[in-house]
Every structure is written in C-alpha cells, then in structure tokens.
Design a binder for these strands. Structure first.
Lengths: 136, 136
DNA sequence: AGCGTGCTTGACGTTAAGGTAAGCGTAACG
DNA sequence: CGTTACGCTTACCTTAACGTCAAGCACGCT
C-alpha cells in the first residue's frame, strides 16, 4: 500500500523548513533558543510539526510588520489553545487586544503615507519628464 | 512693533526640536551624521529650519513603518525640489515608486493580519469568560 | 572672576536579529 | 572503509540605531 511514509508523519526536517519558508537553519535554531518554536527531537535532530509551521508563519508575518520577536512571542500563545493558567491567558488576551489596536493605528497612518507619497510622485512626474526631455 | 523676533526667525534649537518631536539630542545628531538632516550652524550650535522639521517628520513616520534610515534617506530627496542631477532624480523617483509598492503590499498584508487576529480574539473571548467564571 | 546651564564632540556600551566559522557526530553512498 | 552531506553545538562577529558618559566651549548672571 502506498500510504504516507509513517516515518515522515507530517513533520519536516530543518532543511525542508528552510526551503519551505525561506529562512536559514540559524534562524530556526535562534527562534528555538528564544522559545518561539519547540520542534521535537529525534535523537539530536529537530523535527518540525504542523504546529511549528503555523507558528513560524505567524512569526514571519509579525516580523514583516515590524514587531519584535519578543512582542511576537507574547502574542503567539493566543493562537494555541490550552496555554497556561487563567491569569496568563488574560494577560495574553489583553496584549493581543493592544496589538490589534496598534495594527489598526499603523494601518491608518499607512494609508495617509501612501496617499501622500503617491501625490508627491504624481506631482513630480511631469517635472521629471520635462527635465528628461530637456536633457536629450 | 511686536513682529517676530528676527533672531528666532523660524528656526529651533535642538532642545525645542526634542520637545516638539519627542526625540533625544543624540538622535538628532545621529540623523545628522547619517546625512538625513542638515541644520544650519550658528557658531557651533545647531539651528533647525522648517525644512529640517519636515524631513524629521518624514523620517519618524518612515521608521514607524519599519523602513531603515538608509531607505528613508534615499527617498527623502523626492520631497525636496531641485535635488541633484537628472539621473539621480530618476533613481530617486524609481526608488519611491518601489517604496510605494512595498507600502501597498504591506497594507494588504496588514489588513489580513488584522482580520485574522480579530477573529482569533473574538473566538477566544467566550472561552476566556467561561474560564474566568469557573475560577471564581 | 566665578558659576550654572546648555550645547558640543568623541568614545565606548548596548540590544536585536541573526551571520559565520570551527569541530564533532552520524548516516548514506560508492 | 573513506568521503560526502547534513545536522548539532559553541563561540565569536556584525549591523542598525541609538544610550551613556566624559570633557570641554560659550553664554548670561551675579
């Protein structure tokens, strides 16, 4: 029968992860040291599960928005169920709430900046064209 | 006559700048070293003009979006007229164009992330409430 | 003349997020 | 059985963006 190779049951090696997410091994080990990922070990080797992959995706996205790894680590737990005690869970919830607000604010400001830069570009386009023609 | 004090003609000291924009002197000097600002000198002291203030505002906003100072420096010139030769101007224009694209992409992703986090928060709210009640 | 206050330069420290290199283990390949 | 490939750890290096601290001008006041 050609079922899934059971030795490969839904986990990935570090190389596969790197190729899939375009990061280096160093980065994955670093995230692990910072307790953002906790791959299982088979002997000494790391094996990344579905959960690790989900977390990595969230981490990378968080980074793209300029959040620090520490910031990210603290919100990450919200995406896992059953994490810790009630107080900790509430704290996480509040943090996430704040993060959401921050993102909304960022989005608003981004809108303005986009608008402004666009106007600036449009305004300078004819000038640029004129100068380019004059230089010919 | 109580016109504007001519000795203060629209320029600010470093302290005033710091208070107005909530940055440290070190930061302003650092930006100057990196050629993002060029305040005029009155003896050894720095005096910041209208133009410097406009640039600083742009710098700070750029930073909030996660752009590096070097990135920012390169686009900044677009907001000034009469900057350099044609080739340089074209290069700046292209850079700005790319930056605009980057910002649009960032906004799109940000929208998704906001949505996702919001859903996650909404989904976990009842759970949190239940747990909190059970712990009482 | 002395003093305090603000500003200056310069040098060194710090933090985040990795890069890079050295040395070892092991597993598969030919 | 040697070597090639991949993985592991440890340790040091790097860059950006400032912080911090020292030492020295330049005033305005008394």
């Amino acid at each position: 029968m050609t079922f899934k190779d059971p030795s490969h049951q839904d986990v990935m090696t570090i190389r596969e992860m790197c190729d899939a997410y375009d990061v280096t091994p160093r980065t994955l080990r670093f995230y692990e040291a910072k307790e953002l990922l906790m791959p299982i070990r088979q002997g000494t080797r790391r094996l990344y599960t579905r959960r690790d992959r989900a977390r990595l995706a969230l981490i990378l996205r968080g980074k793209r928005f300029g959040f620090s790894l520490e910031d990210i680590r603290q919100t990450l737990d919200l995406y896992d169920r059953e994490s810790g005690n009630v107080v900790q869970l509430q704290r996480t919830w509040i943090l996430a709430q704040e993060r959401l607000e921050a993102m909304r604010a960022q989005r608003a400001e981004l809108d303005i900046a986009i608008d402004e830069l666009q106007r600036e570009l449009e305004a300078s386009t004819p000038l640029l064209a004129a100068v380019a023609k004059a230089a010919e």
